[in-house]
Amino acid sequence: MKAIEIRETGGLDVLDYVDRQQPELQGPDDILVKLCAAGVNPVDTKVRNNGPMLPAGLPAVLGCDGAGVVEAVGAEVTRFKPGDEVWFCYGGIGGPVGNYAEYIVINNHLAQAKPRSIGMTEAAAAPLVLLTAWEALHDRARLHEGQRVLVHAGAGGVGHVAIQLAKAAGARVCTTVSSAEKAEFAHALGAEYCINYKEEDLVESVMEWTGGEGVDIAFDTVGPDVFRQSIPAMAHYGDLVTILEPGPSLDLKEARLRNLRISLELMLTPMLRDLPRARVHQGEILRRCSHLIDRGDLRIHVSRTFPLAQAADAHQLIEQGHVTGKLALTMD
């Protein structure tokens, strides 16, 4: 089978389009999936640059997100049969299991039935960002109806689904964007108020939108500077969640005065620490998101696709920044 493999860390040139042996079922709970598409995420570029996150190490096949058709099942698999369409988030952070490939073998409990109303490309682009946004908003911040939510980088991969998940839960949403075009995109997703961070002051804009009270939840998808800037935009007793490390020199005096609850979100933890119960929970999240997608309350925006052999072009675009929605690789 064809696959994108890295044998050393570095720039775009370490992404090798190679022939690998097609994987085979290893256990009675396994399924063999013929991949149709794979999502491209910033973590893929970080593994390429910095090295694998698992002891399996190099050589490694990248790609955490996948969608495809079940081609074979283990003797004890009852959830799926050959021909079923599935989506999942697994692999891609070390060793030979990843989704930049034509086939993958995974435990059947890691996969879920693909939403009926979307294609393989959208399904492959979705799991990692959906799990990240859902865990941040629902599990960490305890989102509920009527709250005011600030989503940073609302036109990005995580941000564009976070807007929709918050809206579906009955929250009011504002978001940060970098252009009028991205503001229009975010409004179409359900954002009530957009802040162009290049031209407007974040705290002043949030306070204007909230009548001086601040937001109940702020979701940082950008990094330490944005995390710090969000603190004075928060309502007292609010929830501030970040998917990145806040940084070593963090002054939390104002956060303490506001009685903020600060949370960290990393949806890769079940893979990194081998936590089966957490994987079950993530499966339930994908099932619930599938329902939202099929009833029209959640859409996945894929701005560009690339053939598998052109993975380097997708990585280059990710590293240039400001991608709207998601990117995906296709195996057709």
Rank of each mutant, 00 (worst) to 15 (best):
A3W: 00
G10R: 04
P28R: 15
D29V: 15
I31H: 06
V33W: 07
K34Q: 14
T45F: 09
T45G: 02
N49E: 15
N49F: 13
N50V: 13
P52T: 04
P52S: 00
M53F: 00
P55V: 12
L58R: 01
L58K: 04
L58G: 08
P59S: 05
A60F: 05
G63V: 04
G66A: 07
V70K: 03
V70A: 08
G74K: 15
G74V: 08
E76L: 15
F80R: 03
K81S: 11
V86P: 06
F88S: 11
Y90N: 03
Y90T: 13
Y90I: 07
G94H: 09
P96A: 09
Y100C: 01
Y100I: 07
I104P: 06
I106M: 08
H109S: 15
Q112D: 12
P115A: 01
G119D: 08
M120K: 09
E122T: 11
A126R: 00
P127S: 09
L130C: 00
T132W: 08
E145K: 13
V151D: 07
H152D: 05
G157E: 00
V158I: 02
G159R: 02
G159H: 01
H160A: 02
H160I: 01
Q164I: 00
L165E: 00
S179Y: 08
A180M: 08
K182W: 07
A186D: 03
G190R: 06
Y193H: 10
E200M: 08
D201H: 00
L202D: 13
V203C: 14
S205Q: 07
T210K: 11
V215Y: 02
V222H: 07
P224G: 07
D225R: 04
P232M: 01
P232Q: 00
M234S: 02
H236V: 12
G238I: 10
D239S: 13
L240N: 10
T242P: 04
K253N: 13
L257H: 11
M267H: 11
P270G: 11
R273S: 14
R277I: 10
H281F: 14
G283R: 10
E284I: 15
S290G: 07
H291S: 13
L292P: 01
R295H: 10
L298R: 09
R299F: 15
I300K: 04
V302T: 09
F306P: 02
P307K: 00
A311G: 11
D313C: 03
I318T: 04
E319S: 02
Q320P: 15
V323A: 04
L327D: 02
L329Y: 14
M331S: 06
